Amino acid sequence: MEEPLEPEKIRSAIESLIFTSDKPIFIDDIKKLFDNLEAPKIRELIESLQKELIGRSSGLRVIEIAGGFQMVTSPDNAEVIKSYYKIKHTEKLSGPSLETLSIIAYKQPVTRIDIEAIRGVNADGVIKSLLEKNLIRIAGRKEVIGRPFVYGTTRLFLDYFGLKSLAELPKIEEFAQQDILLDVKLASGEGDITPLSKEEEEQLQIGEQDANQKDP
Rank of each mutant, 00 (worst) to 15 (best):
residue 187 A to Y: 01
residue 120 G to L: 04
residue 150 V to S: 02
residue 171 K to Y: 08
residue 68 G to N: 08
residue 69 F to V: 09
residue 192 D to K: 14
residue 130 L to Y: 05
residue 137 R to A: 12
residue 40 P to N: 05
residue 176 A to L: 00
residue 14 I to M: 07
residue 9 K to S: 11
residue 128 K to A: 14
residue 93 L to E: 07
residue 155 R to Q: 08
residue 74 S to M: 02
residue 50 Q to R: 15
residue 52 E to R: 03
residue 172 I to S: 08
residue 151 Y to Q: 01
residue 199 E to P: 08
residue 107 K to D: 13
residue 50 Q to D: 04
residue 201 E to C: 06
residue 10 I to F: 00
residue 70 Q to G: 04
residue 207 G to Y: 02
residue 128 K to H: 14
residue 169 L to Q: 04
residue 198 K to C: 03
residue 216 P to H: 00
residue 215 D to F: 13
residue 7 P to D: 11
residue 66 A to N: 07
residue 66 A to V: 02
residue 177 Q to C: 00
residue 186 L to W: 02
residue 105 A to V: 11
residue 103 I to Q: 09
residue 187 A to N: 04
residue 45 L to T: 02
residue 180 I to E: 01
residue 210 D to L: 08
residue 33 L to S: 05
residue 111 T to G: 05
residue 10 I to L: 10
residue 116 E to I: 01
residue 62 V to Y: 14
residue 57 S to K: 03
residue 150 V to M: 12
residue 25 I to Y: 01
residue 154 T to A: 11
residue 130 L to P: 07
residue 43 R to K: 11
residue 124 D to Q: 07
residue 124 D to S: 14
residue 65 I to G: 04
residue 190 E to V: 10
residue 168 E to G: 06
residue 67 G to W: 13
residue 24 P to Y: 00
residue 185 K to Y: 03
residue 95 G to D: 15
residue 210 D to V: 07
residue 18 I to M: 08
residue 32 K to T: 04
residue 213 Q to P: 00
residue 145 I to N: 09
residue 194 T to Q: 15
